[in-house]
Design a protein around this nucleic acid. Sequence first.
RNA 1: GCCCCCAUCGUCUAGUGGCCCAGGACUAUCGGUUCUCAGCCGAUCAACAGGGGUUCGACUCCCCUUGGGGGUACCA
Length: 543
Amino acid sequence: MPTVVTRFAPSPTGYLHVGGARTALFNWLLAKHTGGKFLLRIEDTDLARSTEDAVRQLLEDLKWLGLNWDNAELVYQSKRLDVYNRIIDKMLGEGKAYEAWETNAELDVLKEAATRAKRAYRYVKPNYTPEQIEKYKDEGRTPVIRFAMPVKEYKFRDVALDKDVTISPYEVQDFVIRKTDGMPTYHFGVVVDDAEMGVTHVLRGFEHLLNTMNHIALQEALGYERPIYAHVSTMLNPENGEKLSKRDRDRRIRKRVQDWMRNNKKTAQDLSAATGVTADRLASWIATDTMQLDLTEQPKIMAVVGLKETDLPEIMIHDFRKNGYTPEVLLNFLALQGWSPGGDLEQMTINEMIEKFSIDRLVSNNPKFNREKLKSFSTDWFGKAPMDRQLAAIKDWLSVNPNSMLNKASDAELTHILKMNAGFHVLSELDEKNRFFFVADEAIEYDAKTVDKVLKKDDGQGLKVLGEVRAHLTEVADWTAGKLEASLEDFVRSSGLVLGKVAQPLRVAVSGSSVSPPIFETLAFLGKDRTLKRIDRCLKVTA
RNA sequence: GCCCCCAUCGUCUAGUGGCCCAGGACUAUCGGUUCUCAGCCGAUCAACAGGGGUUCGACUCCCCUUGGGGGUACCA
């Protein structure tokens, strides 16, 4: 049996999308499972959208996921124009392709006419007279090259769907293979490059199902072998049942903005004043579902309406990384979106996934992306992962979250944080819950509601306890979690209180809020001096 | 409009004609553990879209209806 060769062929438009990552994963798993090769090719034929920066971001995400590719030299389609042109010239000579002179505007008119007549539009090759062609040239037109696609029924076996897919001759049309800017179209580049790279299996998104007809027609015309095709399901947004899209993040913000305006009787002008984004731009953004703000505008608006980064749905792999997921968790979860190993097995290591993967267990249903379950996988994973792996994970997280207070922590402190917060879901949660350790003692902000509830209620019962326990704590010589626990239990016994009545005032005093890691560990981590300092300041500030 | 694909608990899925009055996971609900938030432990709720066939027997095979998704570019 020949070696399996798969590939991932994204077009570089920025950070990697989850959908793309899943496609890459399936191709990678198939290659690993069979001992084959997984190749990476950059489809940068859309000059308007492809940038070097986008390629950089794409590779960064792929590397972060650990989906390493086997071709030492990356294949860029934009660098292979001579290859494509040689083949196109030959096709032209053999009458398998031809020049077409219509402008986009002219084609649009034809399409509209077809729509009005309730017919499907289909390109028909015009019979240009020599005079017409002369005229077009004089106008400065450049022709596209179209493939003269033989009119017949096309059929291929889809191994994911496990059925034959066909199109009738009626749907065949001469599609463009070279654009006026001289670049090949997607269809042409894919077919030529897959053949030249020896790709044996094409696993790609379902939206390519009909494209495959064009591709097999081209393969026949060019004498290429046909690879095995598998089209995988589309991951859906659980909120609207549509394809997961970058726009979903804007939608979440937009909804919040609308609520904010309604509840606070605010207008786009108010928001403009608060953010510096022009009112016109905001107004049209609020009114249109499809419009997207740019990455500098988003945070400003989110700050005003009270949204955090972690409130937005993650769409790009980079979003998941920034919110504190690990590649292991993400890959495991992604594999289950459109594939199942069978039986009750869900949580797997990468190696288990490689071992179990097979095309015929691909699921054809379109899954709705369930972030709750992903989060639960993450919790479980951190509960089992070795500490050195967790430490590496949090350091990676900090590298993409330079503003986090936890950047001040040493490796030993990070390890300590990881341990005393056992049971956390994702790394970003650690930042929220532990940042107070790294804030200056005199900068702790006390949440008013919490102070009322824990310290001032019942005639300042909490404050009274805080004063007493402070005195008790000065006596503790060996400031460790164990000794603190013993000492505080001692205090609880002698004062006739329950631990909660002591722990909560302490917690508020040192953290400013009613949430922190376990109290003994928290105090131990903080150290005696800083603990007492914070208690004193709390007594003073809140009294 | 036309073409294609899909259809089991709210969600992801197991199930390849009798093993299924349908199993697991997430969520939800209830209880337990606990110094907070989590977590953890135990229990409970919850599905074969509808209608026709085929068969001794259909969640499983076929057809129709309905519902959902996708495609219909000089974007990939």
